[in-house]
Nucleic acid binder design. Structure first.
Lengths: 213, 213
DNA sequence: GGTCGATTAGTACGGATGGGCTATGGGACG
DNA sequence: CGTCCCATAGCCCATCCGTACTAATCGACC
């Protein structure tokens, strides 16, 4: 199928220059004579790919926009360049996302946490007709994102009070600011202590501060 | 102040090998004779940093875990290595996050989308004593450094107490933990209130939490 | 209409907090 | 040796904090 063993054309796309450089070096090490073209966005990728009569041999693409747009772009790329290899390199290693990407027509998925040598090997494998999914199963980048969550079940007034507690104001000061009675402020503070499951006003303040107010 | 012009020690940390390689190359290009050590996680960073008698000259750190944990780690690093430069390199360029990071004691913030040359220039600027924040392709913003020095003049014992205050512990509990008298704890708390120029224990907790303690 | 939750307001009480004061011992620096 | 800073410990006292209990108003929901 591929007679052209002399000069591979490989497009490397990543919006982060440093990473793009790194990927280019990996590719060149793996395919010494290859013609590597760089792109910083999807438009550049398409422009590069269409610039030549012959389709590129391999796309090495960062997940520019982690989301549904990506799978869509991959699908379109697969439509237009049926014989090219498409390898996605990405920070996130969410199993569902990977499945979507492979289903969209990618030939390989490689996590950025994988070492350069392994990335090179994976590229070679894909170039060889294999389908490769390779990322860190350990849990180095589980992309956890819970900080903005714990303030959800609070009532609007509770959030008002919490903000001011986090500023270090006393109940009396908070009362003046909100134009309510200090007694009422205490009610809210007490309910906040229960709601956030802490025992002191200071823990409340710390928790609020850490959660981004 | 720095007589050691011959051999800088620079620690480059990023959990993504490819990016780490790229950063290392940038650093070596900017500081040709430098001794560059690589780390893939915070533990390795600390191990490297403590391995030598002399503190490292510069830390170049990826935001390993985008979130509050990072500011905390930075704060601790700043505590332990007062004279080192700390430069954070990160994908995200959220203004609030950057402010938190600088407040936690970093000397510079650089987005990964910035070109290698500009990253090198920024590192040189920081090495030169400047504070640099650089992310959007637009420009270089020298950071002001009055507010970002909140925890510097504290005594070790004050920091001990502050950490526990930020956890929401009462004076009595802190006394038990530190095995000192509650009266003594109050002394430290009072001094902290004056030192950090706040009026309440809660403001203390919030400030400590924001500063990454 | 009845019930529930959110918000408001109050009283009473025990414990925690923070300022001001004094005092001792150990290092560091000159 | 004197001085300064840090850490320790204690006392007095005014204030603040948090809980418990009661109670009124309002809107939502059944």
């Amino acid at each position: 199928m591929h007679e052209r063993t002399v000069k591979d054309r490989i497009i490397v796309a990543d919006d982060h220059p440093v990473f793009r450089d790194g990927l280019k070096r990996i590719v060149l090490k793996q395919f010494p004579g290859a013609q590597v073209q760089e792109a910083g966005c999807m438009e550049e990728v398409l422009a590069c790919a269409r610039a030549s009569e012959e389709p590129p041999d391999t796309f090495v693409l960062d997940l520019l926009f982690p989301g549904l747009d990506s799978t869509r772009s991959i699908g379109e790329l697969r439509q237009e360049f049926r014989s090219s290899s498409i390898v996605i390199v990405s920070m996130v290693d969410d199993a569902a996302l990977i499945q979507d990407i492979m289903a969209a027509g990618a030939d390989g998925f490689i996590g950025k946490s994988v070492s350069p040598d392994e990335i090179g090997a994976a590229l070679a494998a894909v170039r060889n007709g294999e389908f490769v999914v390779k990322f860190s199963p350990s849990g180095l980048v589980p992309a956890r994102h819970e900080p903005p969550a714990p303030l959800e079940p609070l009532t609007p007034r509770q959030r008002d009070v919490l903000r001011l507690v986090a500023d270090g104001l006393s109940n009396k000061e908070i009362a003046r600011k909100l134009e309510i009675s200090p007694f009422t402020v205490r009610i809210h503070v007490s309910s906040l202590l229960r709601a956030l499951n802490v025992g002191t006003r200071s823990a409340l303040a710390a928790k609020a501060a850490k959660a981004g107010l």
